[in-house]
């Protein structure tokens, strides 16, 4: 590495970084949130692994298997609701670039309404299954089915609360670095949940229907 033989001119060498303060708030925050998303991804990966291990025939303990009760078309409507919600959120972010407060709020409102539709459909589906005694207690396989899908639903639920908070903050506050940072983080969160839903839709609903 450096050797003392190399001469350094004490007059010229820069030892102190004057004026070096403000690390970029938004980029630091979004990076941190991206790390959180990474850990959330591991959470889902583990749940998928558990679902995979518990989807053998014997995991259903002679009870119903997903092939007998999932409704891919019904869930397809959920998929559309979530995708449109992400799209609406995207519109809100475009409005943000133009500093258009009304556009941001409308986009967020539309996104949350569509999110509520998704969640409502999910709850309705769960109640339908409970009605015919298909519950998490039926078998290990169904435990995995419910926990995987409902952990995702819980993420959507907290995302919706967050969205309401952001609507309120956008209405009340300026577009400060903090508010913008949060809007970007929420967008990451929302898109990530949509991606996770794609996996759930494919592996749990479509695949489950066909197997």
């Amino acid at each position: 590495m450096n050797s003392a033989a190399e001469k350094v001119d004490p007059e010229k060498v820069v030892l102190w970084a004057g004026g070096h303060e403000g690390h970029d708030v938004i980029s630091t925050r979004t990076f941190g949130f991206w790390l959180y998303i990474l850990s959330d991804g591991m959470l889902f990966a583990t749940l998928f692994a558990a679902y995979g291990v518990l989807s053998y025939t014997h995991s259903y303990y002679t009870g119903p298997t997903p092939a007998q009760f999932v409704a891919p078309w019904y869930t397809f409507i959920q998929t559309m609701a979530l995708f449109l919600s992400v799209l609406a959120y995207g519109f809100s972010m475009t409005a943000l670039k133009h500093g258009n407060r009304a556009g941001v709020i409308n986009g967020l409102l539309a996104a949350s309404v569509l999110g509520v539709v998704f969640l409502g459909l999910d709850i309705h589906d769960v109640l339908r299954l409970f009605g015919v005694h298909i519950t998490p207690r039926t078998s290990g396989g169904l435990s995995a089915f419910y926990v995987l899908t409902q952990v995702h639903a819980a993420h959507i639920f907290f995302g919706l609360i967050w969205m309401l908070v952001m609507i309120y903050q956008v209405m009340r506050k300026e577009f400060t670095e903090e508010v913008i940072g949060r809007l970007i983080s929420l967008r990451m969160f929302w898109q990530f949940q949509a991606v996770m839903w794609v996996f759930i839709y494919v592996f749990v609903y479509l695949w489950g229907y066909m197997s």
Binding site: M42, L47, Y61, V147
Partner: peptide, 27 residues
């Protein structure tokens, strides 16, 4: 997160009556 899931599923078994790790019922 893997730990959280592993322990969370134990909690599901104990609190909700699921069958992730039970000896019967396909656990």
């Amino acid at each position: 997160p893997c730990l959280q899931v592993a322990i969370g599923l134990v909690a599901a078994d104990r609190y909700l009556g699921t069958h992730f790790f039970t000896a019967g019922f396909g656990g």
